[in-house]
């Protein structure tokens, strides 16, 4: 039973990745313009024969179905094709830059969590909560690139506390991470606060208080757990914000990373890299959803399905 459940889950995940890969393939085949022209550059004066031989080499002269099947079989083997521009395997292009973006995403998430938790748990009283909700509204509404520019101009150019550009150690990570973190913290903070306010009216809080739980214990053991469930449903959205934020922020702070790769691939119509990034994003989302489901079970014992109950009984 457990095995079947796991298999069904894995199959579902594969279907989503396959769907993304297929959609990317189909849609990008509709893109006007000849990829060979992109490879050679606009200025190049290549003979039609040369172009034809390149096309044959890439398999672009094959029927669409054949191209699709060979694309899928290469994907399965972990071969995402070769970048038109950089003449490197796409996996290598992504692999080289992945570390920078992962660092940025992890730092952003950590900062956002801290700000959101502090705002939701420690801020009490009508006036303070009002001020915080206005700050959250501002953080959500401000364009992330503008937040980045303001931080740069105050803390890098003005005060000189941080470097202006690049990715060199923790110093250069703080401002970009903060830029991505602020809007995320705004959304998370709103959801956590609403969840906490909602939890405080639940009967389990009264019973916990009656059993003598102090305010800190009440929040940590009971209400925060309750508030974490709606916050977790945002996980996919937050990961998306981290990735989308990376595109903008890496550009603002002149940092290397996946976002820069994506941007340059989009501007230069480097289709294999674009497809690789779409498939990569789909894989990330599928994995995040899996983690979120597991986290739900850990947080809320009521979500135990019969299978996990059996597994727990063993």
């Amino acid at each position: 039973m457990v095995l079947r459940r796991i298999l069904a889950r894995v199959a579902g995940m594969l279907v989503v990745v396959w769907g993304a890969a297929t959609a990317a393939f189909l849609v990008l085949k509709l893109v006007p313009g000849d990829p060979v022209d992109v490879m050679l550059g606009v200025s190049a004066q290549a003979s039609p024969e040369l172009k034809q031989s390149i096309r044959a080499e890439l398999g672009l002269d094959q029927p669409l179905v054949v191209q699709y099947l060979s694309y899928l079989s290469r994907l399965v083997r972990g071969d995402f094709g070769t970048s038109y521009q950089l003449r490197l395997p796409v996996t290598e292009v992504i692999g080289q830059q992945l570390g920078y973006t992962l660092q940025l995403a992890a730092a952003s998430l950590a900062i956002a969590l801290v700000i959101a938790l502090v705002g939701a748990v420690l801020v009490h009283g009508r006036a303070a909560r009002g001020v915080f909700s206005v700050l959250e509204l501002l953080a959500i509404s401000s364009p992330p690139f503008w937040i980045g520019l303001v931080l740069l101009s105050v803390f890098a150019f003005g005060l000189g506390w941080f470097p202006v550009a690049g990715a060199d150690g923790i110093q250069s990570l703080i401002l970009p991470a903060l830029t991505i973190a602020l809007p995320v913290a705004g959304i998370l903070g709103q959801v956590l606060r609403t969840g906490l306010e909602d939890a405080e009216e639940q009967p389990f809080v009264t019973s916990a208080r009656a059993r003598g739980a102090g305010p800190a214990r009440l929040v940590l053991r009971h209400t925060l757990r309750h508030a974490a469930i709606p916050a977790l449903t945002l996980a996919g959205y937050i990961v998306g914000s981290l990735l989308g934020g990376a595109v903008v922020v890496e550009s603002v702070f002149a940092r290397p990373g996946l976002g820069r790769v994506a941007l340059s691939a989009i501007t230069n119509r480097d289709l294999p890299v674009v497809m690789g990034i779409i498939v990569f994003t789909a894989i990330v989302f599928v994995l995040v959803n899996l983690l979120v489901d597991l986290a739900y079970r850990a947080i809320d014992p009521r979500i135990h399905t019969p299978t996990t109950a059996i597994r727990g009984a063993r």
């Binding site: 989503v16 996919g236 998306g240 990735l243 989308g244 989009i266």
Partner: peptide, 12 residues
């Protein structure tokens, strides 16, 4: 599935 992504990423 589309709603799981922020609008900016889809626009990109």
């Amino acid at each position: 599935i589309l709603l799981a992504f922020p609008e900016f990423l889809i626009a990109l």
